[in-house]
Simulated scan of single mutants.
Amino acid sequence: MTRLWVDGRDVAEVTVASTWGARARGMLWRRRLPEAMWFVRESSVHGVGMTVPLDVAQLAADGSVLAVHVLRPFGLVAPRPGAVDVLEAPAGSFARWGLAVGGVAQRVPAGTAG
């Protein structure tokens, strides 16, 4: 299990999508959305097939948050210079976690410090 840390605080369990298949599926066709999903080597995402809005953050290689968006169903978050990964979560999650532009997101194995 992997945990998501935001600005040094453990905030959620994160599903890591590091393969082509996992990235292509994303949050589609899930009975229950994951608390968060980290897309490795993706700089943009789309909401085609989604029925609910999602919070989306575009991340630099060091995990710093370059941009934050609300992705509506069938919407698009375009690529952003410097973005290498994307973080998604159900809408409203980022506000609860305090995730904002300039902050830092990290993937941390459960049971270890961030």
Rank of each mutant, 00 (worst) to 15 (best):
A61F: 10
R41K: 15
D62L: 06
G63N: 03
V16A: 01
G8R: 13
R25D: 01
G103C: 12
D55K: 05
V40W: 11
W38F: 14
A17T: 00
W20L: 15
E13I: 01
G98Q: 12
T15S: 09
G8N: 13
W38P: 03
P73I: 01
P79Q: 09
S18C: 11
P109D: 02
R30P: 05
S64K: 14
L99E: 05
G8A: 13
V16P: 01
V65D: 03
A60F: 08
R9V: 11
R107H: 09
M37Y: 07
L59D: 02
W29H: 14
G82D: 11
G21K: 11
R30L: 12
L76V: 15
P34V: 10
W97Y: 13
P34N: 10
V16S: 00
L33F: 03
V70G: 05
V48K: 09
L71G: 00
A89D: 13
G114F: 13
L66W: 05
T2M: 12
L71N: 00
G63A: 06
R23I: 00
E88R: 10
V48S: 06
A12S: 10
R32L: 09
L66M: 05
A89T: 15
L59C: 06
P81H: 14
S43A: 12
G111C: 07
Q58A: 09
H46C: 03
G102V: 04
A89H: 12
S43M: 07
A57R: 04
P109H: 02
V104T: 15
L59N: 04
R31Q: 09
S93E: 00
A105T: 05
Q106T: 12
W38T: 10
V86L: 13
V68S: 10
P90G: 05
V104L: 06
V104I: 11
L99Q: 07
Q106C: 13
S43Q: 08
D10W: 06
A60R: 07
F74M: 08
R3M: 06
P109E: 03
V11W: 04
G63T: 08
S93A: 13
A100N: 04
V65M: 08
A83Q: 08
